[in-house]
Amino acid sequence: MEIIERIRQRDVRAIARLMSLVENNAPEATAALKELYAITGQAFIVGITGPPGSGKSTLTDQLTKEFRGGGKTVGIIAVDPTSPFTGGAILADRIRMQQHSLDAGVFIRSMATRGHLGGLAKATGDVVNVLDAAGKEVILVETVGVGQDEVEVVKTADTCVVVTVPGLGDDVQAIKAGILEIADIFVVNKADREGADKTVAELQAMMGLAPGRSDWSPPILKTVATQGQGIAELAQGIFAHRAHLDRQGLRQTRQRERSRALFLELLQEQGTRRLLERASANGTLEQTIERIARREMDPYSAVEELLAKAGL
């Protein structure tokens, strides 16, 4: 396959085109992903998540500068929401990342959620794999602005950075519950604003309420991303977390969990699709649904019957 060879040679156009094929669910994409899978798993993947306007893009930009300074190549995936009314999207994260636009060691790709919930686009994991196969050493995945439980990034990233800002309300409302649990590192960005120390204190108090996490205690770091303040410390924090994962063999554990999630998701998706294709082939699916609606048949038996017919 020509595209595989071009991706191994880090051809930017081939990488970009494969990403589009992946996003569009094209059959060629699956074929290419199969070929490339063996050489993925090399990159270190960092998720950046947090509420809208917390400065995720600027932090991503600054972290990229820091990693480039350390000689690492960087891939960035920036996700923005698709409008549920029009299916269109404005992807504007690149505005904050202009300083890297001519650096051959940085590849930036904007993705729209296309209706997928959870803070990422459905194809984000596959696009990460494309960047990984293309030799990017660090991959930054910036989620859409999230609220309280869009935590899918944890399935993709080795290290999750949760960003907040001072003044979001008592008890750091926006990062309660789900988001709190996925943080490997907390960042209080815009820390030159009033209330930064209060936000840090609240986060510390919240972590005190959620004991029992492994032997990694998520650090809380203050940054002013627009001025580059605290970025070196954040990069160090990310490397420290990576060292922790390696020391404990946790990277393999996370990769195994990720593989499980990916495999089960594909199985569920394709298994369901094929079953439905078979079941609807001669109109039986609609007939069955009609019978269930008329209470002539119960849905539980209907499912059992369908699966039995498929030999399951």
Binding site: T82, S83, T86, G87, G88, A89, I90, L91, A92, R94, I95, Q98, S101, S110, A112
Partner: peptide, 11 residues
């Protein structure tokens, strides 16, 4: 965007 396109804006 309102016509359903994915628009990348770079500033």
């Amino acid at each position: 965007r309102d016509a359903g396109f994915e628009v990348i804006y770079t500033g």
